[in-house]
């Protein structure tokens, strides 16, 4: 337990003293995962809407498959993307391997099923009467969808927070696709993994506390924005 207390003190020290390396790693984690969640949101919320608002054969099966991929292992995503972007892969020419972009791609794929599935769930949770009321008020199909999405905003933002949490806390894809290069692709999780192997448990724990702190701040900010709009 001694380590935990020391870690807490050190985490506070690292933050208060604005330790350049810790700040840099933290900002990179934040930037990569924020980019991943934004890109994923742009695709996944409309895809979730499309699936929810249209009836097609195999819809139930499709939703089950999406939900299965909630538990997609991060290392499997890492491996999958690696196959595509490694030098001999089909996208090898883009030279993406061991860049921040590679980590973003991996995280986008990782959180897509969660975002799509939870968007569908959020939209299903909206009272059917909202759609009727919107259409009856003269809304077009698109306007009605927007009204429903607006009603589901709390659940959708919840999905975004969850997706962000999954992205910033994963280590498999970041390690396999980013390579943990100091000053370039090292993020909080890969740094924790490295420092633990090196035996610096206190620094690892301190970085872990910072990671949770970031997640907390993001969630609080999102909720404040949600209350306001």
């Amino acid at each position: 337990m001694q380590e935990l207390w020391q870690a807490l003190v050190q985490a506070v020290n690292l933050i208060v003293s604005l330790d350049p390396e810790v700040i840099e790693i933290s900002l990179r984690s934040l930037y990569i995962s924020a980019a991943a969640i934004l890109i994923a949101a742009v695709f996944c919320i409309p895809i979730g809407g499309l699936i929810h608002f249209h009836d097609f054969r195999g819809k139930r099966v499709a939703i089950n498959v999406i939900q299965t991929f909630y538990s997609l292992p991060t290392v499997v995503v890492g491996l999958f993307v690696y196959l595509f972007i490694s030098r001999s892969g089909p996208l090898g020419g883009l030279e993406l391997l061991f860049t921040p972009a590679a980590i973003i791609i991996g995280q986008v794929i990782l959180i897509m099923p969660v975002l799509i599935g939870m968007t569908i769930g959020a939209l299903s949770g909206v009272d059917k009467a909202i759609r009727d009321t919107a259409l009856s008020s003269g809304a077009s199909a698109t306007q009605a969808m927007r009204a429903i999405l607006f009603e589901a905003k709390f659940a959708v933002v919840g999905a975004l927070i969850l997706g962000f949490g999954r992205a910033i806390s994963e280590v498999g894809a970041a390690l396999m696709l980013g390579g943990n290069i100091r000053g370039y692709t090292r993020v909080l999780t890969t740094a924790i993994s490295l420092e633990t192997q090196r035996g610096d448990l206190v620094l690892s724990l301190a970085l872990g506390i910072i990671l949770i702190g970031i997640a907390m701040v993001v969630s609080v900010i999102m909720n404040i924005l949600l209350q306001r709009y």
């Binding site: 009467a129 909202i130 009727d132 009321t133 259409l135 009856s136 008020s137 003269g138 607006f150 905003k153």
Partner: peptide, 16 residues
Amino acid sequence: RRRMAMVFQKPAVFNS
């Protein structure tokens, strides 16, 4: 629909 209007049995209000 824009020439009609309907009130439903269960009052549905938007969350605004």
